[in-house]
Structures are given as structure tokens and as C-alpha cells.
Design a protein around this nucleic acid. Sequence first.
DNA 1: CAACATTAAATGTATGTACATATATTTGCA
DNA 2: TGCAAATATATGTACATACATTTAATGTTG
Lengths: 148, 148
Amino acid sequence: MKIEDEIKQPTFSDVYQKGLINILYTAGWIGQRNTIQLKQYGITAPQFNVLRILRGQHPKPATVNLLIERMLDKTSNASRIVDKLELKKLVTRTVCPSNRRAVDIRITEAGLQLLSEIDIVFAQEPQLRNLTEAEAIQLNDLLDKIRD
Amino acid sequence: MKIEDEIKQPTFSDVYQKGLINILYTAGWIGQRNTIQLKQYGITAPQFNVLRILRGQHPKPATVNLLIERMLDKTSNASRIVDKLELKKLVTRTVCPSNRRAVDIRITEAGLQLLSEIDIVFAQEPQLRNLTEAEAIQLNDLLDKIRD
DNA sequence: CAACATTAAATGTATGTACATATATTTGCA
DNA sequence: TGCAAATATATGTACATACATTTAATGTTG
């Protein structure tokens, strides 16, 4: 559905303004779908994001700093997201031996197991399925260009 | 900058997965810029969004339901965003005479004045300035197609 | 018209975002 | 060496998100 109809705004000042709104709206639309899918696994989208970063590092640990660098939303509070994951036994947190200011965060076996379950479900229901491969590449190029 | 470098993830499972992450990341990037600009006017992005909807209705009132319909994030809590705007005297809230369950929300003169100031600043610093008009149109088409 | 369902908004709770500040550790250098 | 600056993380506060529940008004129907 066209963005004009989605938010019931018949006109925009120009196509740039419209593009801006469209990115924000579409991101919210995707985020909501993700939230719903993740809910049945008892985690939120930022928690899922952190778990995937930790799996990428596994079996090496990550620090809070590394998580902040790689999170989609760099200003969010990684400490408290790790708190929640630790409560669910999906990650461990130990003082880094070589730098006692830092904290080594590791994904647990339970965390890896949970991610692999979610992977299967997400793979079965591919996102952006409406785009051809060429269109998906085009989209990536346009988005990268916006942030130049 | 390419999304691979932004979040330091050298590869993605496919170009669709990459596009998905790219939309979420770019939306966050835009949102952060907006937040910073709006901060000097003492309002947040959702509050700004609600004010613009109310200006679109002006001088007619809007209900909370209408706001929810038109907000970029439809699941957010419009009641409490209106609370904050009312405290700042940017909107008024009166019981709707024809349906005493509903509330008529109107933007005040101060609210209109604030929006016109922000408009000037935003117009001077156009968003998506790196795209040509043709590219912006292409982007809108791709995003609309994703949500089909 | 009374009882129940529906609708509109507000409120409660857990989590996350944004940002300032605090605490502990390490580093650099006078 | 000792002390200030820098670094790594945690904590506090205000606001927003997500969603369940509550309150009040309006519709509906036997």
C-alpha cells in the first residue's frame, strides 16, 4: 500500500520528505512484525540483536563496548539489555581478567539453541519477499547513499 | 558508508537480510538526527509527529483514535504523548460534545508558532539531500512494494 | 428498558531509548 | 610514585513503546 494511504496523508511537500517518512514508517512496520515473532520466544528485538552479535563472536567474549559499536541503535543502553539476557540465562557476564574495568559477555548454550530455533522460523518466512534480487540490491544502494 | 562497515558485519546471509537490516539501521540514523534537531525546541519526535497531524486537522479537532491511525508508530501511546503536549500548552484537550467518550484535541497558537519555526530550520537542511529526485521516487516505490 | 457488548480513552507495568552522572580501573606524565 | 585524565560499565531520570487492564459512555438486543 502506498505511504499516502497508510498514514492518510494525501500529499507531501516533496518526494524527499515523502521518502523520509516512508523509511521511518517502513522500519516501524518491519519492527512490529519482528516484535510479534520474537515474543513467542520470550525476547525483544534489541535482545535478539545482542544475542546475534554474541553468536558472531562465539566462543570469544564480547564487551559492552563491542555491543554498542555493532548494535543497530548505537545509543541504546547495552548494559540493561545484557541484564535481561543474563536473567534468562542466555548470556554470562564475567569480569575481564586482562582489564578489570571491562566485562566479558558470552552467549550460553541455551542462547545458541534459542537462536537456532528462531533462525528456522525466520528462514521459512523470508522478509522483503516482494522484492526481486535486483530491487533488493537497488534498495541497499539507495539507503547507503542516504547516509553518506 | 556501506551498511557492512557501519555495523562491522562483513557478510549477510543474503541481499534481502541485508536490506532488512539496512532499513532498520537507516531509520535509526534518521531518527537520531531528528531527535537532536527537535531537542532545541523542547519536543520529542513522537510529539512533533502528533503536532503535525493536529496542524493538518486545524481548525478541526482530532480524537486520540485519529492520532493513532495517522501516527508513524501505530502502537505507541497517544494519550500520554498528548499529556506532554498539553503540559507545554501546545495542545488543548476537551471532552467531545457529541460523544462524551471521545476527546477533542486541538493545536494551540503556540503549537502552530513552534511548528512554523521548526519548518524553517528543516527546510534549510533538506533530508535525503544525497539522492536525485529520480532516486527518491525509486526509493518510495521500493518501500511501498515491501509492505504490499 | 435492563443487561450486555462495544467503543474511546486512560492507566499500569515491563522494557527500551536518550542522556547525564557515578563508580571503578587503568593510563599517562609531571 | 602520585595524581589527573581517560576508559569501561553501571545507574538514575524522563520519555516512549508494547500490551494488558480499567473506566466511562454509548449501542444493541431480548
